[in-house]
Amino acid sequence: MTTAAISIRDVRMDYPTPDGVKHVLGGISYDVTEGHYVSIVGPSGVGKTTLLRLLTGLAQPTAGEIIVAGKRLSGAPEGLAVVLQDYTRSLMPWLTVERNIALPLRNEKISKANVRQRVKESLTEVGLEGSERAYPWQLSGGMQQRVSIARALAVRPRILVMDEPFASVDAQTRFDLEDLVLKVRADFGITTLMVTHDIDEATYLSDDVVVLYGKPATVSDIVSIDLAFPRSQVETRNDHRFAQMRTRIYEKVRGLS
């Protein structure tokens, strides 16, 4: 039996607005299997980011609960790391790459030498060895996003949450980062949840794609992506089953079926 790393149970989220209460999430239930890569897709404004804020403990659901490691979520859970879309605003511009990565390690009781070692390992994992002393703004967008990923890896998370992680970089860099994420996944097997609007990307990277649809949003489909690992940008994307799955997800996102 597989265990659920994250258990989302009938989660509802309402926002008060001047025109009355807005129901954003209307009863979302889903179990994320330990070690799986799950993408959450859906039309713009459906509440993907809201769900992500609930999963990271930044907001509390109106009803329902989220269980992480057997505990009901209230506030940011231990062992969870994030990579956000806006790398220019999620890395601290006044800290060097090394200090950015080391910042979340402050509350862990590890020696300075160990911190430096972890920073080094994380940077090597993302292919940025030797960039410790640069400032984030001296790096390209793709490299900054690699630093974000390194920062997430340095805390040795059990769960990685990513919000549109590759939305602000150019196409070539995007492919590189996608493959980097696959490599990280193969190396560490971290349970990963990614919010994205890019259906191809979701299909390419995930074990499961969860489609949110409707107002309020509910899970309209869960598509199992049983394409073989390791995946490759050319072969995987040319697989006719890849096309079938992305078509199915596309139709669900568009509300066509």
Partner: peptide, 11 residues
């Protein structure tokens, strides 16, 4: 975004 990041990393 900066504050969210800091909070998720449990500063």
């Amino acid at each position: 975004v900066l504050l969210d990041t800091a909070m998720v990393f449990r500063l």
